[in-house]
Computed example of a mutant assay.
Amino acid sequence: MLRFLVPVLAALLLLPVGAQATERERLGYGRLISNDSIGEFRDRERTGSYVSSRVWGPQWTGRLPDRFGQLIELRLGVEVLAPANLRRPQAGSRPWAGALSVGMHTHFERDAAEYSVGAAIYATGPQTHLDDLQRGIHDIIDATSPSDRVLDNQIEDGFHPTVLVEIGRSVPIGARTSLRPFVEGQAGIETFVRAGFDLTFGDITRGEMLVRDSTTGQRYRVVQSRDATGFAFVVGADIARVSDSVFLPSDRSYDLTPRRDRVRAGVHWQGKRASAFYGLTWLGKEYETQPDHQLVGSVRIKIDF
C-alpha cells in the first residue's frame, strides 16, 4: 500500500508549484467543529474534531474545473477519540486516541461527475500532545479528564499516509432541491469503502463548493456565494465497510462491526454579512464491544467584518 500512497501524496504536494500555479487564486476558506457535547451532552467515542480547508484555483464560476490539479485544497484536521468512561473504562472499551492530519486534495468535474482525490499524513500518539490539550480544556470547564491509566493505553506514536477518493453527482430535483449520491474509498488511517447520499433543500449552497468532514460526513461550505440569503436544509446517510482502523487495532483484539452507519441532518443560514451551520449526526457502532451508538453536533459560524 505504501508504494501507492507515497507517489500520490508527492504528486499532490507538488501541484501548487507546477505550471498551473500562476492561474490560481485563493477561492475560499471553510471549517467545522464537531463534538458530542454539542450533540448529546456526553463525552465518549468520537468525542471531538476540528477540520479547516483553504482552497486555491482558477476564478470560481459556480462549478468545479474539469482538470485534475487545477483546484487545490489544503486540509488540516484534529480528532480525539475516547472510551465511554474516561476514568475507569470497561473491558473492551475503545482506546484513547488523538490524531493530527495535514492533507492536499484536488477537486474536479467530468461528465457531470464530481471527483475529490486527496492524500494526507496522520500523526497519532502522545507526540501530538492532544492528551494534554484535552486535559487542559476539561480542567478549564470543570469536566472529567482522562485518567493516567486511560492515557497510558492510548494509541501509540505513528505516522499514517492516507489516500481518499470520492465520486459524487448532483441531481437537481425541482428548483430548490438537489440529490447527491456518492461513493468513497480510503486507505490508510482507516481503510474503507462507503456509499451514501446528501439531499439539500433551500435557497443557498447552489453554485458553491462544499467538502466532506471525515468524522460526521457533514459537508461544509468552502467557496461561498453572497448572491442569495436564507436557509438550506440538508439530510444524508451513508454505509461503510471498514476493513482496518489504526484507532481500533486488531492486535488489541478489537473486532470491527460488519458495517458502519451514519445518518445526518443540518441547516445552513446565510445573511448579508454572516453565515452559520448547525448539524447533528447519528453514528452507529464501530466495534463489537462498543456500548452504544452516539450523537455528534457540528457547528460553524462566519462573520464578515
Rank of each mutant, 00 (worst) to 15 (best):
R87D: 12
Q90R: 12
E73I: 12
P89I: 01
Q59C: 07
G62C: 06
G69D: 06
P65A: 05
L86T: 06
L64W: 04
W60N: 02
R75T: 14
L64N: 08
A84T: 08
P89D: 03
R63Q: 09
A82G: 06
I72Q: 07
L64H: 09
F68P: 01
L76K: 01
R63G: 00
L71I: 03
E79Y: 07
R63M: 03
P83A: 15
L74E: 14
T61Y: 01
L64V: 04
D66Y: 13
L76E: 06
Q70N: 14
V78E: 12
G69L: 02
Q70G: 00
A82H: 06
A91D: 10
P83Q: 13
R75I: 13
A91V: 13
L74Y: 15
E79K: 15
E73R: 14
P89N: 03
A91N: 05
A84Q: 11
R87M: 11
L74V: 14
E73K: 13
V78P: 01
E73Y: 08
V80P: 03
G62S: 03
N85G: 02
L71T: 11
E79F: 08
W60F: 09
P83S: 15
P83N: 12
Q59G: 13
P89T: 03
A91E: 15
E79L: 12
E79I: 11
W60K: 05
D66N: 14
L71F: 11
G77E: 13
R75Q: 15
W60A: 03
Q70Y: 09
F68A: 05
R88M: 01
L74N: 14
R67E: 06
L64R: 02
A84G: 11
R88H: 06
T61F: 00
L74A: 14
P89E: 00
Q90K: 12
Q90G: 09
P65E: 02
E79A: 13
R63Y: 02
R87P: 00
L74K: 11
L71W: 03
D66P: 15
L71A: 07
L76G: 09
R88N: 10
R87W: 04
L76Y: 11
E73F: 08
I72D: 10
L76D: 09
A84P: 01
A91W: 06
V80K: 05
R75N: 14
L86P: 02
P65W: 00
R75C: 13
L81M: 04
P89C: 04
R63V: 00
E73H: 03
N85R: 01
T61M: 08
G77N: 07
L74F: 15
Q59Y: 07
L86N: 01
R87G: 12
V78S: 07
N85S: 09
Q59N: 13
T61K: 09
Q59D: 14
L74C: 08
R67G: 12
L86W: 07
